[in-house]
Amino acid sequence: MVKDLSVGLCGLTLKNPVIPASGTFGFGLELAKDMDLNVLGGISLKGTTREARYGNPTPRIAECPGGMINSVGLQNPGINVLVNEKVPALRKVYDGCIIANISGFSLDEYRECCAKADVCEGIDIIEVNISCPNVHNGGMAFGTSAESAAEVTRTVRAVCRKPVFIKLSPNVTDIVSIARACEDAGADGVTLVNTFLGMRIDIHRRQPVIANKMGGFSGQAIFPIALRMVYQVAHACRIPVMGCGGVASAADVIEMMMAGATAVQVGAENLRNPFACPEIAAALPDLMEELNINTLQEIIGTV
Protein backbone atom coordinates (compact mmCIF):
# COMPACT_ATOMS: atom_id res chain seq x y z
CA MET A 1 0.00 0.00 0.00
CA VAL A 2 1.23 3.48 -0.85
CA LYS A 3 2.26 5.31 2.28
CA ASP A 4 1.20 8.89 2.96
CA LEU A 5 4.16 10.73 4.47
CA SER A 6 2.63 14.19 4.28
CA VAL A 7 1.90 16.24 7.35
CA GLY A 8 -0.12 19.43 7.80
CA LEU A 9 1.66 22.28 9.52
CA CYS A 10 -0.10 25.62 10.09
CA GLY A 11 -2.08 25.34 6.88
CA LEU A 12 0.91 24.16 4.85
CA THR A 13 1.30 20.61 3.60
CA LEU A 14 4.79 19.16 3.95
CA LYS A 15 5.50 16.20 1.64
CA ASN A 16 7.14 14.52 4.63
CA PRO A 17 8.08 15.58 8.16
CA VAL A 18 11.87 15.50 7.62
CA ILE A 19 13.55 18.91 7.90
CA PRO A 20 17.25 19.62 8.26
CA ALA A 21 17.64 21.82 11.34
CA SER A 22 18.95 25.36 11.23
CA GLY A 23 22.72 25.60 11.19
CA THR A 24 23.27 22.06 10.00
CA PHE A 25 22.39 22.49 6.32
CA GLY A 26 23.61 25.98 5.43
CA PHE A 27 21.14 27.74 3.16
CA GLY A 28 20.31 24.49 1.36
CA LEU A 29 22.17 25.71 -1.72
CA GLU A 30 25.47 24.32 -0.42
CA LEU A 31 24.06 20.79 -0.91
CA ALA A 32 21.95 21.34 -4.00
CA LYS A 33 24.53 19.69 -6.27
CA ASP A 34 24.94 16.68 -4.00
CA MET A 35 21.34 15.58 -3.60
CA ASP A 36 17.79 16.16 -4.76
CA LEU A 37 16.63 18.67 -2.15
CA ASN A 38 13.03 18.05 -3.18
CA VAL A 39 12.89 14.83 -1.18
CA LEU A 40 12.95 16.99 1.98
CA GLY A 41 9.72 18.12 3.63
CA GLY A 42 11.28 21.42 4.60
CA ILE A 43 14.61 23.14 5.11
CA SER A 44 15.37 25.35 8.08
CA LEU A 45 17.97 27.83 6.92
CA LYS A 46 21.03 28.98 8.78
CA GLY A 47 20.31 31.41 11.61
CA THR A 48 20.26 34.97 10.32
CA THR A 49 20.75 38.32 12.04
CA ARG A 50 20.32 41.93 10.92
CA GLU A 51 23.99 42.49 10.08
CA ALA A 52 26.44 40.02 8.56
CA ARG A 53 28.38 38.15 11.25
CA TYR A 54 31.65 36.24 11.05
CA GLY A 55 30.83 34.42 14.27
CA ASN A 56 33.18 32.99 16.84
CA PRO A 57 36.90 32.21 16.55
CA THR A 58 37.96 28.65 15.72
CA PRO A 59 38.08 25.92 16.91
CA ARG A 60 34.30 25.94 16.78
CA ILE A 61 33.79 22.18 16.89
CA ALA A 62 34.50 19.58 19.59
CA GLU A 63 33.74 15.91 19.23
CA CYS A 64 32.07 14.07 22.11
CA PRO A 65 30.82 10.52 22.65
CA GLY A 66 27.41 10.38 20.98
CA GLY A 67 27.54 13.94 19.75
CA MET A 68 29.45 17.14 19.29
CA ILE A 69 29.73 20.69 20.58
CA ASN A 70 29.54 23.61 18.19
CA SER A 71 30.18 27.26 18.75
CA VAL A 72 29.84 28.74 15.29
CA GLY A 73 28.28 31.88 16.74
CA LEU A 74 25.69 32.67 14.08
CA GLN A 75 27.98 33.24 11.13
CA ASN A 76 25.66 34.57 8.45
CA PRO A 77 25.53 37.15 5.64
CA GLY A 78 22.72 39.20 7.19
CA ILE A 79 18.95 39.41 6.58
CA ASN A 80 19.18 41.39 3.35
CA VAL A 81 21.34 38.76 1.66
CA LEU A 82 19.01 36.06 2.98
CA VAL A 83 15.84 37.54 1.51
CA ASN A 84 17.40 39.01 -1.65
CA GLU A 85 19.82 36.23 -2.64
CA LYS A 86 19.72 33.00 -0.63
CA VAL A 87 15.98 32.36 -0.52
CA PRO A 88 15.26 33.28 -4.17
CA ALA A 89 18.15 31.05 -5.29
CA LEU A 90 16.94 28.14 -3.13
CA ARG A 91 13.36 28.61 -4.31
CA LYS A 92 14.49 28.03 -7.89
CA VAL A 93 15.63 24.50 -7.05
CA TYR A 94 13.41 23.59 -4.11
CA ASP A 95 9.63 23.32 -3.95
CA GLY A 96 9.23 22.31 -0.29
CA CYS A 97 8.77 24.33 2.87
CA ILE A 98 11.44 27.00 3.38
CA ILE A 99 11.90 28.02 6.98
CA ALA A 100 13.84 31.21 7.73
CA ASN A 101 15.60 31.08 11.10
CA ILE A 102 15.95 34.52 12.68
CA SER A 103 18.17 35.45 15.57
CA GLY A 104 18.69 38.75 17.29
CA PHE A 105 20.38 40.71 20.02
CA SER A 106 17.47 43.04 20.67
CA LEU A 107 13.71 43.15 20.20
CA ASP A 108 14.28 45.70 17.46
CA GLU A 109 16.54 43.32 15.58
CA TYR A 110 14.03 40.47 15.83
CA ARG A 111 11.24 42.80 14.67
CA GLU A 112 13.19 44.15 11.69
CA CYS A 113 14.49 40.78 10.51
CA CYS A 114 11.15 38.99 10.88
CA ALA A 115 9.36 41.81 9.05
CA LYS A 116 11.76 41.39 6.13
CA ALA A 117 11.38 37.61 6.17
CA ASP A 118 7.61 37.99 6.23
CA VAL A 119 7.53 39.87 2.94
CA CYS A 120 10.08 37.58 1.27
CA GLU A 121 8.11 35.53 -1.21
CA GLY A 122 10.00 32.25 -0.92
CA ILE A 123 9.78 31.93 2.85
CA ASP A 124 6.95 29.76 4.21
CA ILE A 125 7.63 29.74 7.96
CA ILE A 126 9.56 32.07 10.23
CA GLU A 127 11.44 30.28 13.00
CA VAL A 128 12.59 32.64 15.73
CA ASN A 129 15.69 31.49 17.52
CA ILE A 130 15.64 32.60 21.15
CA SER A 131 17.95 29.79 22.17
CA CYS A 132 21.39 30.14 20.58
CA PRO A 133 23.89 29.33 23.32
CA ASN A 134 26.84 30.71 21.37
CA VAL A 135 26.39 34.45 21.42
CA HIS A 136 26.57 36.74 24.41
CA ASN A 137 23.84 39.17 25.46
CA GLY A 138 21.42 37.72 22.97
CA GLY A 139 20.10 34.50 21.60
CA MET A 140 19.52 32.24 24.54
CA ALA A 141 19.06 35.13 26.96
CA PHE A 142 15.61 35.70 25.43
CA GLY A 143 14.67 32.05 25.69
CA THR A 144 15.42 31.37 29.32
CA SER A 145 12.46 33.15 30.88
CA ALA A 146 8.77 32.95 30.03
CA GLU A 147 8.44 36.74 30.15
CA SER A 148 11.20 37.51 27.64
CA ALA A 149 10.18 34.61 25.38
CA ALA A 150 6.65 36.02 25.31
CA GLU A 151 7.99 39.51 24.65
CA VAL A 152 9.95 38.34 21.58
CA THR A 153 6.93 36.38 20.39
CA ARG A 154 4.61 39.38 20.69
CA THR A 155 7.14 41.59 18.94
CA VAL A 156 7.53 39.37 15.88
CA ARG A 157 3.86 38.32 15.84
CA ALA A 158 2.93 41.96 15.35
CA VAL A 159 4.94 42.18 12.09
CA CYS A 160 4.33 38.69 10.61
CA ARG A 161 1.45 37.23 8.68
CA LYS A 162 3.31 34.00 8.02
CA PRO A 163 3.40 31.19 10.60
CA VAL A 164 5.82 32.00 13.42
CA PHE A 165 7.60 29.20 15.28
CA ILE A 166 9.67 29.98 18.36
CA LYS A 167 12.77 27.79 18.74
CA LEU A 168 13.22 26.98 22.40
CA SER A 169 16.27 26.36 24.54
CA PRO A 170 16.51 23.20 26.63
CA ASN A 171 18.77 25.04 29.08
CA VAL A 172 15.83 25.98 31.29
CA THR A 173 14.14 24.67 34.41
CA ASP A 174 10.66 24.38 32.93
CA ILE A 175 10.40 24.33 29.14
CA VAL A 176 6.62 23.83 29.31
CA SER A 177 6.02 27.21 30.96
CA ILE A 178 8.11 28.91 28.26
CA ALA A 179 6.29 27.09 25.45
CA ARG A 180 2.94 28.09 26.96
CA ALA A 181 4.08 31.71 27.26
CA CYS A 182 4.96 31.68 23.54
CA GLU A 183 1.61 30.12 22.68
CA ASP A 184 -0.25 32.72 24.72
CA ALA A 185 1.76 35.49 23.05
CA GLY A 186 0.62 34.34 19.61
CA ALA A 187 3.16 31.82 18.38
CA ASP A 188 1.84 29.46 15.69
CA GLY A 189 4.19 26.71 16.83
CA VAL A 190 7.36 25.89 18.70
CA THR A 191 10.55 24.13 17.64
CA LEU A 192 12.39 22.25 20.36
CA VAL A 193 15.07 21.72 21.33
CA ASN A 194 18.13 23.80 20.50
CA THR A 195 21.50 22.57 21.78
CA PHE A 196 22.53 21.99 25.39
CA LEU A 197 25.26 24.26 26.71
CA GLY A 198 28.36 22.09 27.01
CA MET A 199 32.12 22.15 27.29
CA ARG A 200 35.21 20.02 26.68
CA ILE A 201 38.76 20.52 27.93
CA ASP A 202 41.93 19.42 26.13
CA ILE A 203 43.76 17.86 29.06
CA HIS A 204 47.11 18.05 27.27
CA ARG A 205 46.91 21.77 26.58
CA ARG A 206 44.85 22.43 29.74
CA GLN A 207 42.55 24.63 27.66
CA PRO A 208 38.95 24.42 26.50
CA VAL A 209 38.71 22.66 23.12
CA ILE A 210 36.33 25.34 21.84
CA ALA A 211 37.86 28.80 21.40
CA ASN A 212 34.74 30.35 22.91
CA LYS A 213 35.13 27.93 25.86
CA MET A 214 31.54 26.63 25.76
CA GLY A 215 29.19 25.65 22.99
CA GLY A 216 26.01 23.82 22.13
CA PHE A 217 26.00 20.05 22.59
CA SER A 218 23.90 18.05 20.15
CA GLY A 219 23.79 14.60 18.60
CA GLN A 220 22.28 11.24 19.38
CA ALA A 221 23.14 11.52 23.07
CA ILE A 222 20.50 14.23 23.61
CA PHE A 223 17.65 12.37 21.87
CA PRO A 224 15.95 11.02 25.02
CA ILE A 225 15.98 14.45 26.69
CA ALA A 226 14.72 16.21 23.58
CA LEU A 227 12.01 13.57 23.13
CA ARG A 228 10.89 14.03 26.75
CA MET A 229 10.65 17.80 26.26
CA VAL A 230 8.72 17.43 22.99
CA TYR A 231 6.32 15.05 24.76
CA GLN A 232 5.79 17.46 27.66
CA VAL A 233 5.29 20.53 25.48
CA ALA A 234 3.10 18.80 22.89
CA HIS A 235 0.78 17.59 25.60
CA ALA A 236 0.63 20.98 27.32
CA CYS A 237 0.13 23.20 24.26
CA ARG A 238 -2.36 23.27 21.39
CA ILE A 239 0.09 24.68 18.83
CA PRO A 240 2.18 22.27 16.70
CA VAL A 241 5.67 21.23 17.67
CA MET A 242 8.67 20.67 15.43
CA GLY A 243 10.73 18.10 17.31
CA CYS A 244 14.49 18.41 17.22
CA GLY A 245 17.43 16.93 19.05
CA GLY A 246 19.51 13.87 18.33
CA VAL A 247 17.32 12.54 15.51
CA ALA A 248 19.40 10.15 13.41
CA SER A 249 17.02 7.64 11.81
CA ALA A 250 13.54 7.04 10.47
CA ALA A 251 12.73 5.31 13.76
CA ASP A 252 13.71 8.45 15.65
CA VAL A 253 11.35 10.47 13.42
CA ILE A 254 8.45 8.12 14.20
CA GLU A 255 9.32 8.24 17.91
CA MET A 256 9.38 12.06 17.92
CA MET A 257 6.02 12.12 16.13
CA MET A 258 4.46 9.67 18.57
CA ALA A 259 5.71 11.99 21.34
CA GLY A 260 3.79 14.81 19.70
CA ALA A 261 5.95 16.37 16.99
CA THR A 262 4.16 17.30 13.75
CA ALA A 263 7.45 17.70 11.90
CA VAL A 264 10.93 16.54 12.84
CA GLN A 265 14.21 18.36 12.42
CA VAL A 266 17.50 16.56 11.90
CA GLY A 267 20.54 18.46 13.14
CA ALA A 268 23.98 17.20 14.06
CA GLU A 269 23.46 13.97 12.13
CA ASN A 270 23.84 15.99 8.91
CA LEU A 271 27.38 16.87 9.93
CA ARG A 272 28.43 13.24 10.23
CA ASN A 273 26.39 12.17 7.23
CA PRO A 274 25.49 14.92 4.75
CA PHE A 275 22.97 12.52 3.18
CA ALA A 276 21.19 11.81 6.49
CA CYS A 277 17.96 13.66 5.65
CA PRO A 278 17.31 12.10 2.24
CA GLU A 279 18.23 8.69 3.64
CA ILE A 280 15.82 9.10 6.56
CA ALA A 281 13.01 10.27 4.27
CA ALA A 282 13.63 7.30 1.97
CA ALA A 283 13.58 4.85 4.89
CA LEU A 284 10.23 6.02 6.29
CA PRO A 285 7.84 4.05 3.99
CA ASP A 286 9.37 0.65 4.83
CA LEU A 287 9.34 1.42 8.53
CA MET A 288 5.72 2.58 8.29
CA GLU A 289 4.87 -0.72 6.60
CA GLU A 290 6.56 -2.64 9.39
CA LEU A 291 4.66 -0.63 12.03
CA ASN A 292 1.30 -0.79 10.20
CA ILE A 293 1.18 2.97 9.66
CA ASN A 294 -0.51 4.18 6.50
CA THR A 295 -0.48 7.90 7.06
CA LEU A 296 2.17 9.57 9.19
CA GLN A 297 -0.23 12.29 10.29
CA GLU A 298 -2.23 9.75 12.28
CA ILE A 299 0.59 8.91 14.68
CA ILE A 300 1.26 12.46 15.91
CA GLY A 301 0.97 12.59 19.68
CA THR A 302 -0.49 9.12 19.99
CA VAL A 303 1.65 8.31 23.01
Partner: peptide, 21 residues
Protein backbone atom coordinates in the same frame (compact mmCIF):
# COMPACT_ATOMS: atom_id res chain seq x y z
CA UNK B 1 41.21 23.63 10.82
CA UNK B 2 38.98 21.54 13.04
CA UNK B 3 36.02 20.64 10.82
CA UNK B 4 32.42 19.72 11.36
CA UNK B 5 30.72 18.59 8.16
CA UNK B 6 33.76 18.84 5.87
CA UNK B 7 31.53 19.87 2.99
CA UNK B 8 30.84 23.55 3.47
CA UNK B 9 27.44 23.72 5.10
CA UNK B 10 28.04 23.85 8.87
CA UNK B 11 30.45 26.80 8.86
CA UNK B 12 32.47 25.20 11.65
CA UNK B 13 35.87 25.82 10.04
CA UNK B 14 35.52 29.40 8.83
CA UNK B 15 38.52 31.72 8.82
CA UNK B 16 38.76 35.45 8.19
CA UNK B 17 40.53 36.37 4.96
CA UNK B 18 41.11 39.55 3.00
CA UNK B 19 38.07 38.52 0.97
CA UNK B 20 35.84 37.97 4.01
CA UNK B 21 34.96 34.73 5.80
Amino acid sequence: ERMGCGAGFCYGCSIQTKNGP
